[in-house]
């Protein structure tokens, strides 16, 4: 077969096959990633309600955006949520992973339980937690009342609208917990043995072995955590509809409203781009700072 033409050398054939195999990914990249990003950039400079053709308006959308108090409100809500929930989630899931890494009887059962909430998300869970946080008949305030205090007016007071959503996010940290667990189990035992011989105590071992060895995993969880947190939508949509008084107006919820309630596709695209740039900035900062705190094994076996 390969001898039909000299031009079809083995490596060229392989390349051809390679492209064929990569086709789905390449098409996906073009149609569902790069293409839409470009289109989004274009729409962000237009006024477009889908019903008529897009009208070029230059920077108007961006200028309006920066004067739009709801945009700033949505940014504030999203930032508070991210800045609180991501580090909290990272810490809690690391603590859980350390706990679940113990080689004790029945640990598998506990691992199963702790991961359980992570397989559920979306509407049903949001509805459940809305009920759990009901200020008067809900589980949480009942528990608080058992301790002799009176629980806050969750979702009714503006100040107490965002915290339940953050707490709820902690319930679902199973995903990053498992990634930590995988990371923990990848740490060679001989490191601990050597440290033990050197007389290092548990705390020292944690600081000098576990944390550095785990730093790539922390890095991964941090990045995915931030991207996830900046895109929260369902909770705001189902639990609070962005209220009260926009206290839970997440950026993506505001974007959704602009796009699909007010049919301002151009404005929504500008909003999406600003959100994108923010995520990009966060990611870049973390990437740039990573040499300072992410430790990569020198001898890592790599198939690359």
């Amino acid at each position: 077969m390969n001898t039909k033409k000299k031009w079809w050398t083995r490596s060229r054939l392989e390349a051809l096959d390679g492209y064929v195999f990569m086709t789905p990914a390449i098409l996906g990249l073009l149609f569902f990633m790069l293409g839409p990003i470009g289109a989004s950039a274009y729409f962000s400079f237009t006024e477009y309600d889908i019903l008529s053709t897009p009208k070029w308006v230059g920077l108007d959308n961006y200028i309006n955006l920066f004067q739009d108090s709801l945009f700033w409100q949505s940014l504030k809500v999203t930032m508070i949520y991210s800045v609180v929930s991501v580090p909290l989630g990272l810490t809690v899931s690391l603590a859980l992973a350390l706990l679940l890494n113990k080689n004790i009887r029945g640990i598998f059962v506990f691992r199963t339980i702790f991961y359980l909430p992570a397989v559920m998300s979306g509407v049903a869970v949001a509805l459940l937690w809305k009920w759990i946080f009901n200020p008067d008949f809900g589980l949480i305030n009942w528990a608080i009342s058992l301790l002799g205090f009176e629980g806050p007016k969750w979702f009714i007071d503006e100040e107490w609208a965002l915290p339940p959503i953050i707490i709820m996010s902690l319930w679902g940290v199973g995903g990053s917990m498992l990634v930590y667990l995988a990371g923990l189990q990848g740490i060679p035992t001989d490191l601990y043995e050597a440290a033990e011989i050197d007389g290092a105590n548990k705390r020292k071992q944690f600081r000098n072995i576990t944390l550095p060895m785990l730093s790539p995993v922390i890095f991964f969880n941090l990045i995915t955590g931030i991207i996830g947190a900046l895109q929260v939508f369902t909770e705001g949509f189902i639990m609070t509809q962005g209220g009260p008084n926009n206290a839970t107006l997440f950026s993506v919820l505001y974007l959704y409203r602009n796009a699909f309630s007010y049919l301002q596709m151009g404005y929504a695209s500008a909003l999406a781009w600003v959100l994108f740039l923010i995520i990009l900035a966060f990611t870049l900062i973390i990437f740039k700072s990573s040499p300072m705190w992410v430790f990569y094994e020198g001898n890592r076996r790599s198939g690359k």
Binding site: I156, D157, E158, G243, P244, N246, Y262
Partner: peptide
């Protein structure tokens, strides 16, 4: 009107009835 209702009227009325 819809946009005015969502963006301005409802949130402000919420505040009136929350005595804020």
């Amino acid at each position: 009107w819809r946009e005015a209702q969502d963006k301005a009227i409802s949130p402000i009325v919420d505040q009136i009835f929350a005595n804020k």
